[in-house]
Amino acid sequence: MAGENVKHLTDAEFDEYVLKADLPSLVDFWAPWCGPCKAIGPVIEELAGEYAGKVQITKMNVDDNPTTPGKYSIRAIPTLILFKGGEIVDQVTGAVGKTQLVAMLNKTV
């Protein structure tokens, strides 16, 4: 279930919404078949609430949107990438905890 704070991105929207954005964007690359992705879902929801207005918290389903994951050589999920000014500033793979993600966001915000 997607909270209203988490934007679900498509390949078509990615450039406009993430790369050209003024705010930093965290993209959670996930898929419905991935257990660890499902497990971090609620953490992403919480972050979206807490960082509203500071970081765009987004998700991209890699099954429906193969182009962007291909562009960033993503071959493992969940992979979370933090973009700022069109560039990757940080990246983590695996079901990491909220504390680690908060630390990652706070370094950039």
């Binding site: 257990g35 660890p36 497990a39 971090i40 079901a95 990491v96 905890g97």
Partner: peptide, 30 residues
């Protein structure tokens, strides 16, 4: 330290946990 579930989360399918006659995914069990 991460998210609850541990290594079971990466198990595709669990057929040998009693009480679930049809089996289930690791993340559903967690």
């Amino acid at each position: 330290k991460g998210v609850v579930g541990g290594q079971v989360l990466v198990t595709d399918w669990i057929d040998n946990y009693p009480g679930f006659p049809d089996g289930l995914t690791g993340s559903d069990l967690i």
